[in-house]
Computed example of a mutant assay.
Amino acid sequence: MLVAAGFRPDSASGRLVAATRGGRLLALWTDATRAEAKRILGQIPPLEDQDLALLFPEAGQVAAPLAVGPVSGADGVIDQTLAALALSAGAPLVTADRLLAAAATAAGATVLSPTEAERRLAS
């Protein structure tokens, strides 16, 4: 979603990221998920200098171990962690990644596309 927002700030992803930066939404994160976001954006020259501080406020940090087992079908540790964050918090996982969405849904998480999340935010 961060990559989509970086290239298309007028998209649903872009508006959700702007709402997060503006404090209307709170993104949940771990050190690993924040590091992965920085790593991915750091590999894309037009996006590598983005300031992520407002996207990862201290209030959204989840430091305790997540008490959720492996999420079948999730691709890698970061996807496992993202699904576990949603499950542990009872919060929706907002993603356009179909494999992650399918795995998280199968594990019992609520998954929303960026467009669906934006609609909910507006209502």
Results as ranks from 00 to 15, higher is better:
Val68Thr: 15
Gln50Asp: 10
Thr110His: 03
Ala103Met: 09
Glu48Met: 14
Arg119Leu: 12
Ala53Glu: 15
Ala59Ile: 06
Val17Ser: 01
Asp75Thr: 11
Ala117Ser: 03
Ala12Cys: 09
Pro114Thr: 01
Pro65Glu: 09
Ala32His: 05
Pro45Tyr: 06
Gly73Lys: 14
Gln43Ile: 05
Ala32Pro: 05
Leu26Ser: 08
Pro46Leu: 04
Ala5Gln: 02
Glu48Cys: 12
Arg119Lys: 13
Gln80Asn: 09
Asp75His: 10
Ala74Gln: 13
Asp10Thr: 08
Phe56His: 11
Ala63Cys: 03
Glu58Pro: 05
Ala91Gly: 14
Ala103Arg: 14
Leu112Phe: 10
Gly23Cys: 14
Thr105Ser: 14
Phe56Trp: 08
Gly42Ile: 06
Ala59Gly: 07
Ala67Arg: 15
Leu99Met: 07
Ala64His: 11
Gly6Arg: 03
Leu54Gly: 02
Phe7Ile: 06
Asp75Gly: 01
Arg15Phe: 02
Ala35Ile: 15
Pro46Cys: 04
Leu41Trp: 00
Leu2Tyr: 08
Gly73Trp: 12
Ala106Trp: 08
Met1Pro: 10
Phe7Asp: 09
Ala19Met: 11
Ile44Gln: 10
Arg39Val: 05
Ala64Asn: 05
Asp79Thr: 15
Asp31Thr: 13
Phe56Arg: 00
Ser123Asp: 12
Val94Glu: 00
Ser11Lys: 03
Ala19Ser: 07
Leu26Asp: 02
Ile40Asp: 06
Ala96Trp: 00
Ala4Gln: 08
Arg98Pro: 07
Ala19Lys: 10
Gln50Met: 15
Leu54Gln: 15
Leu2Glu: 14
Phe56Glu: 00
Gly22Pro: 00
Lys38His: 10
Leu112Val: 10
Ile44Met: 12
Val62Phe: 09
Arg34Asp: 04
Ala37Gln: 00
Asp79Gly: 10
Glu58Thr: 08
Ala4Met: 05
Asp49Tyr: 04
Ala106Leu: 08
Asp75Trp: 02
Pro46Tyr: 05
Leu93Gly: 02
Val94Met: 08
Phe56Pro: 09
Val3Asn: 07
Leu54Cys: 05
Ile78Pro: 09
Ile40Tyr: 03
Leu66Ala: 07
Lys38Trp: 07
Ala37His: 01
Gly6Ala: 04
Gly69Phe: 09
Ala109Pro: 13
Thr95Glu: 07
Thr20Glu: 05
Val94Asp: 01
Glu116Phe: 07
Ser72Gly: 13
Trp29Thr: 13
Lys38Asp: 04
Glu116Gly: 03
Ser123Tyr: 09
Thr33Asp: 02
Leu28His: 11
Leu52Asn: 09
Asp51Ile: 00
Gly23Pro: 01
Met1Leu: 07
Pro9Glu: 03
Gly69Met: 13
Asp97Asn: 11
Ala35Trp: 05
Pro70Arg: 12
Glu118Lys: 00
Pro65Leu: 13
Leu100Cys: 06
Val77Leu: 09
Val94Lys: 07
Pro46Trp: 04
Ala117Lys: 04
Gly60Phe: 00
Leu26Asn: 03
Ile44Lys: 08
Val71Asn: 08
Ser11Val: 02
Ser72Ile: 11
Thr30Glu: 02
Ala83Ile: 10
Glu116Asp: 14
Arg8Gln: 12
Phe7His: 13
Pro70Met: 08
Gly76Asp: 09
Asp31Arg: 15
Thr30Phe: 08
Thr81Ile: 06
Ile44Phe: 09
Thr110Arg: 15
Ala37Asn: 02
Leu85Asn: 06
